[in-house]
Design a protein around this nucleic acid. Structure first.
Lengths: 161, 161
DNA sequence: TTCGGTTAGTTCCTTCAAGGAACTTACGAG
DNA sequence: CTCGTAAGTTCCTTGAAGGAACTAACCGAA
């Protein structure tokens, strides 16, 4: 579990990143639009966008040369990150609901119904949450036994298995 | 979509929080254990734990009075947040895999197989990801039409619908 | 041709939060 | 009586975030 979470957080761990991602997802994908809708500092937005592009989550593309204008689009990698947002939304709706119900609804293309996501087991299709699994060391585990503080560890790479 | 993400991020938005949650989930649930395994500053850990307890995600319980000793445990609310971690792990494994495969594996109690989570539609059971939904305004939407910058907004509450 | 206006950033300065190391409290063991 | 441990606090230093203003590259209108 450890390092995959850390690696994911390395990409979208800072608080603004998921909100930026969400905005691009819903079509707010130009610099000034994002900056105004989130009320984020232009400097930080520049940094985050650069990082998200470097990480392969967003793509910066020119929609007009002369005047050079750019917009940001989700890659396949980024679109799958938005699945994570869907799960966040689900939790936020369930546990921190405002007075008036969820602010946004999702209609599933396949069935046309207003719905929400559920976690299922990829093998047996039954519900699969954190309460329904055992955690075992896998092939990429840092070291067999009880070793923490791997040496060349970057930010977020502290967490041992 | 907006504010539910923001509300969720308000609880676990800072980078350390998901890692703390994960540690408690796997049984590393005392102050010094967490501090050492994450190599996090004691001060910040204190703050995060306090916040997670206030948010109802963790519970601080005394496992020994005199000497007063405490440990942290997940609440139901917190356990469901761990579902989010499972989805993070899935993404991290797929897109930022190390050389040697995933560091941790999950065995599903119901079927006994090593597996991973999939997102399904709660209504029709078919796969449901960010690519498979339309986003519509819901009952709790800030305002009907194109209004941003709601006034009394706290941190993360900037994001309009 | 000059005067805005728009988009996408930089630059600079100030404030706030994170990190690190040492200190505190409350006990129990030798 | 000193040592060790768990769970924090306190203090100081560094790094990142926020804010406002400035730049660049063009377009269209006066």
């Amino acid at each position: 579990m450890a390092c995959s979470i850390a690696r994911t957080l390395d990409v979208i761990g800072e608080p603004w990143s998921p909100l930026i991602l969400r905005n691009v997802y819903v079509g707010i994908n130009r610099f000034d639009q994002i900056q105004q809708s989130l009320d984020i500092s232009r400097k930080v937005l520049t940094e985050r966008l650069k990082w998200l592009v470097e990480s392969g989550v967003l793509e910066r593309r020119e929609y007009s040369s002369r005047p050079p204008r750019h917009e940001y689009a989700l890659t396949a990698k980024g679109l799958e990150l938005c699945d994570l947002l869907l799960v966040m939304v689900r939790w936020g709706d369930r546990w921190t609901a405002g007075e008036a119900g969820p602010p946004v609804l999702y209609r599933h293309h396949a069935c046309g119904e207003i719905s929400h996501v559920e976690l299922r087991c990829a093998v047996c299709d039954r519900p699969m949450g954190a309460a329904d699994v055992d955690v075992l060391p896998g092939p990429g585990a840092g070291a067999p036994a009880g070793s923490h503080d791997l040496p060349g560890a970057d930010r977020y790479e502290h967490a041992g298995p």
